[in-house]
Amino acid sequence: MGAIINPFILYGLCVLGGAGVCLALPRGGRTPQVIGALLAALIGGAALLFLGVKAGHDHPNYYFYVFSLIGLGAGLRVITHPRPVYAALYFILTVIASAGLFLILSAEFMAFALIIVYAGAILITYLFVIMLATQAPEEGEIEVLADYDVNAREPLAATVVGFLLLALLTSMIFKGIGNLPGPGNALGKDVAANMPLKAERALRSAGLIKAGETVSMINLEEGFIQIQDLDGQFQKIERRDWPKSLESTNIEHVGFNLLRDHPGTIEIAGVILLMAMLGAVVLSRKQVQLDEEAKRAQAHRLGLIEREGGSA
């Protein structure tokens, strides 16, 4: 397979995109940020569009282009917005766009886990810390952004390094890679055979087995499910009669993969989370210095003062 995209066009796009990002980085209002951001967005769009034309299928996947443009554009705003709160909010947009990409890749569980964990938990923690660590302007004072937020450090050098890396990566990526396999292909090992209870529930709700009958065997190779009725008689349900609710979902596949193939890694992940929790508690603990009056007020509120007074 030949390259999808000519490497020289690719390097040109990388140079232009790098120039756009470099202009878009905040430099105290000395560069036309808007023009830079527009340039970078246009280059990203052009690259994706070019890929869409070159991929040459009868119907391109519009959702992919929409989600990836939103994701990359919001990512650009994360690194160029001078206000940290807005940067965090744009990052949430990036997370939502990548969740959309995961949905197209039929990874539904990961898409929603991403939104819940990233957008719902991690980013909220970031927002809290941003709000804790910035001083509010005094009454009647105009808010001034900090110098370190307004001025980027070495924007030219960093962009050159970044887009050199991107050019290298993409020139390897586009050395011709086939299409993603269509939805008709086998997606992992089948897990339905391991779930007789689920099969029984699905068959029962489809009305294929009556009260008192149970599933005795699931044979996927030959394609039948054997059920046993009250008198001990066996019956077969052929594959063509299987109900649609018997299909295994993405979350079942991920769960089986997680627990059957990577049990040790789960343990390690648990230890990492525990250590992180302990570390965060130890790091952020602070000895609060109270003066005598505050101590007395605290003691009074806790009801300690009466006891003290009684003993004195």
Binding site: I4, A47, L51, H57, D58, P60, S68, L72, I173
Partner: peptide, 16 residues
């Protein structure tokens, strides 16, 4: 599953 995998290669995702 949604059909529109077509037209998008692995390279597209890797580029993004």
């Amino acid at each position: 599953y949604p059909a529109p995998i077509a037209g998008v290669t692995l390279a597209h995702y890797l580029f993004v």
